[in-house]
Design a protein around this nucleic acid. Structure first.
Lengths: 333, 333
DNA sequence: GAAACCAATGCAACCGGTTGCAAAAATCCG
DNA sequence: CGGATTTTTGCAACCGGTTGCATTGGTTTC
């Protein structure tokens, strides 16, 4: 039923090759045949089958977009940007939701079956091994929001979480907080580990500071709220650096829910700067992750990979910046 | 470089057909050859090329997932569910972000080029014509979160927005509100129109009620906040039915930002029940849209379509329910 | 043991395109 | 105008699979 190359060729009175060539960038066709073919194609409503052509060209323009972050509101922005940027380059995102049930190997196999030109792993919690498996199967891959490494074994784009930890620490110190808390995300997540490292590194060498640590079970509102509720049972710190924004919002909810004020009784600084953080009834002071740059760079990198497969793995890391809003007390001047 | 059918056939010492058949459900192969083939395939790390096989079978297992709602947090949940459910059925979502720049016709053409087995249009703001174009191109299509219609021209799954409007109205009446406001989403969106219809229908026949109406420019936090700020310049109503949850949260932000209390001074009821609505520092009374059912049903319908293409278009609409939280005053007993 | 049957197999054509190559057509040039 | 050059064109093979059909081989039945 669908109209094929052959139909167009017959209608236009030319060979199949001629038709193929009129739809191929840079192929040699005379103006006259091109016109005939285009007319016939338009009349029949023909458009070439991308899958069939991929068979010979070896390019599908399909990009696997793999993520396990379908609950963090930040990732809606992430998906929005990825799809836009990929589309702009004529690439198509094949979305894979990596849940607890999905087997990592099966995902690799799946994406190979669809001959994706490349894969973007968008996740702050996945281990580098996941992306590495693609690399070893010679599928161009980029790990976005992955962990910084001096000489990464696989392309990785993200932020320097250790430095973010330091920034958070300096920010709290500048505001005169003395009893300071680190409320991390899941204990085993590399982002948690790195942020903690930078955070405590700075605080330890600062005199007169008392640091406490705790960890939420997930990067989620509920986990943040639960953990903060827990902390409030004892003597809370004066300010907390929370694992990320959604965790921070959970913590804020717990604090105000207990009748305490922010930043009067407890200060909070988050990380991400997701859209919601600027909402006036949240108004979260946080550290902005430049997701636009991360995503731009990821797409660029995956494209570079399939132009030059032997390209050595590269790490690209972007600086973050403090976004001052209302959940920390002001710097005393 | 990648290993193909032929390689496996040679290694196993059988014909290509034999290899193909061992990987085809229900094909006739003896246990002996199957064993040989599987051994060879495992050693070579072979897995069949889904795209090549689609050429003859006519099935790609690719589903176009088209949306223009990449800013409404509800849609993160929507994408999560869609991808999960599709994956469970062995289908692959090809994600299309329909922005202002993307041409609807180009999207149709694109998805045809990739021979998608079906298309799901997930959008509460797109016109039925968009989905209809796929239908006319004989591509199985379902419009999720679309507008109710007695005899739809295209498959549509969603909620009865008129009835939701009525529910909201009855809920406000039951709580003794007299001066009641409708704060809709974009004036031209069908969801806005329908909700308004049901809402005013009930309020008009109730004695002693004063209804006012206004419209936000988008289903977004900022638009909701701006519109409520606007309303608060004059004499606000006692309670508002807002276009959706994110709009409601914007409105809440404006109200509390002005030093007014919720529900003491102004009541708010939203629609959607997105995850955030239950967060304790938002705690929004709202109308739950059963997105799980909508998505289940959409997937089921699109699958049914490609098993039976001549299936007449069907509309499936689900009931919503009030979720009582803290932004309306209690029913007086 | 032969006839009848059924499952398993391989051949070859096909799905909808692309592309190297040689022949044909158009253009250039003296 | 004729030969040399360049451009355009069609043929046929190929991409990686699937499948109808005829053939083969193994079982069953009498």
């Amino acid at each position: 039923m669908p109209v094929t190359l052959k139909d167009v060729a017959k209608k236009a009175g030319v060979s199949r090759s001629a038709v193929s060539r009129t739809f191929t960038e840079g192929a040699s066709v005379s103006a006259k045949t091109r016109r005939k073919v285009e007319k016939a194609a338009a009349e029949l409503g023909y458009s070439p089958n991308a899958l069939a052509s991929s068979l010979t060209t070896g390019r599908t323009k399909l990009i696997g977009l793999v993520s396990n972050n379908f609950h963090n509101p930040l990732f809606l922005e992430v998906f929005d940007l990825f799809t836009r940027l990929l589309q702009e380059r004529g690439l198509r995102p094949l979305l894979v939701n990596l849940t607890d049930q999905t087997d990592p190997d099966a995902t690799l196999q799946l994406l190979r079956q669809y001959s994706v030109d490349g894969v973007i792993v968008a996740s702050s919690t996945l281990s580098p091994e996941f992306a590495l498996a693609f690399q070893e199967a010679r599928v161009p891959v980029v790990h976005s929001f992955g962990r910084i490494a001096a000489s990464p074994r696989v392309n990785v784009v993200g932020i320097d979480n250790v430095e973010c930890g330091r920034m958070a620490a300096r920010t709290l110190i500048a505001r005169g907080y003395k009893r300071i808390g680190f409320m991390g995300g899941p204990r085993e997540a590399s982002s948690t580990i790195d942020r903690r490292t930078g955070f405590t590194e700075v605080l330890k060498v600062t005199p007169g500071i008392n640091v406490t640590e705790s960890f939420a079970t997930a990067y989620s509102f509920d986990a943040g709220r639960a953990e903060m509720l827990n902390l409030l049972k004892g003597e809370p710190a004066e300010a907390y650096f929370c694992g990320d924004d959604v965790l921070s919002i959970g913590a804020l909810s717990a604090i105000t829910g207990k009748g305490l004020s922010v930043p009067g009784d407890v200060g909070v600084i988050g990380l991400n700067d997701m859209d919601m953080a600027r909402w006036e009834n949240i108004n979260l002071t946080t550290i902005r992750q430049p997701i636009r740059q991360i995503i731009d760079s990821s797409v660029e990198l995956v494209v570079a990979m399939f132009d030059k497969p032997e390209r050595p793995p590269e790490g690209r890391f972007f600086a973050c910046e403090i976004v001052e809003r209302g959940t920390l007390r002001p710097v005393k001047s």
